[in-house]
């Protein structure tokens, strides 16, 4: 499912009459099976963009195409849209409501045309994919679970619908290192089986290590877009280093100290290889 955004803009009026442009003229394309990160300072329009991509808001102007069909056009089947895109917001408590975990995860399957047995199997699959023991967790109250478990149940509820596109808003913010790694592994696996992943994050390292493409927003505008590596390299020296990965920062410091010059470093892996080369081979001037 390829996504094409053309000149997307979103503005709203403050009560004082002032117009706020949350998004200005954003255009880009996401191919099927891509893993896209969206980064930018708070207030840059990231969440608005996600909401528009998921068809949860109408743009002020501009068009969004899924596989060439405009999703906000009159004839487009909204149900198909809901089925195609799954969104997980940052706070799992915004989603959980049912008396049992099983019922909550099954909520999204009500209109899917699955038989009772198929639905239960799907719920089982979703929960087990998120690392749960189905029999143990199915009758627990989702509201009584721990924070990390709630997050995983919320995600299970969305992947149970098997959407082709998965959108996450700040999925790893506030997670401990294990939670972070587990989540990133999980989305990588989903991506490998063909699901398009779109996620916003402030975590440069996570974006650098896992995403294939990046979109960079600032004050509602798309200031850069492209392959992850290239974007990080281009942005390295701009905006006071706000978009640097830690590996890049180290490489810059080493270069300033005239100890090592390796401008191509983006990830920790790159840094390690560069250090290895430096320390075993000969210096590069």
């Amino acid at each position: 499912m390829s996504i094409q955004i053309e000149n997307l803009s979103f503005s709203y009026l403050q009560p004082s009459g002032e117009k706020v442009d949350a998004l200005k003229n954003v255009s880009f394309t996401i191919e099927t099976g891509d893993f896209v990160g969206i980064m930018g300072p708070t207030g840059s329009g990231k969440t608005t963009l996600l909401q528009l991509l998921a068809g949860l808001r109408l743009p002020t102007s501009g068009r969004i195409y899924f596989n060439g069909e405009e999703i906000n056009a009159k004839g487009y089947d909204r149900n198909r849209l809901r089925q195609t895109v799954g969104v997980v917001f940052q706070d799992p408590e915004y989603q959980l409501f049912a008396t049992t975990v099983e019922k909550d995860v099954a909520f999204g399957l009500k209109e899917s045309g699955l038989s009772r047995q198929e639905a239960t199997d799907r719920v089982r699959w979703a929960l087990e994919t998120m690392g749960f023991d189905f029999e143990k967790v199915r009758n627990q109250s989702p509201l009584a679970l721990s924070g990390g478990e709630k997050r995983r149940v919320a995600i299970a509820g969305v992947i149970a619908r098997k959407p082709e596109i998965l959108i996450f808003d700040e999925p790893i913010a506030g997670l401990d290192p294990f939670g972070r790694e587990n989540f990133l592994q999980f989305v990588t696996e989903r991506n490998q089986t063909g699901t398009t992943i779109i996620m916003t994050s402030h975590n440069m390292e996570a974006l650098a290590e896992y995403t294939k493409h990046l979109l960079v927003l600032k004050e509602g505008r798309l200031i850069d877009a492209g392959a992850t590596r290239e974007v990080f390299t281009r942005l390295k020296q701009r905006y006071n280093g706000a978009f640097q990965t830690k590996a890049q920062r180290i490489a810059i410091l080493l270069a300033e100290g005239k100890l090592m010059f390796s401008p191509a470093v983006v990830t920790y892996g790159d840094l390690l290889s560069a250090l290895k080369q430096e320390l075993t081979g000969g210096g590069r001037g």
């Binding site: 999204g108 969305v158 619908r161």
Partner: peptide, 13 residues
């Protein structure tokens, strides 16, 4: 607002 969106995205009617 966010809660409404989250559930509509899940197919709530």
């Amino acid at each position: 607002e966010l809660i409404k969106m989250a559930q509509i995205a899940r197919g709530a009617r």
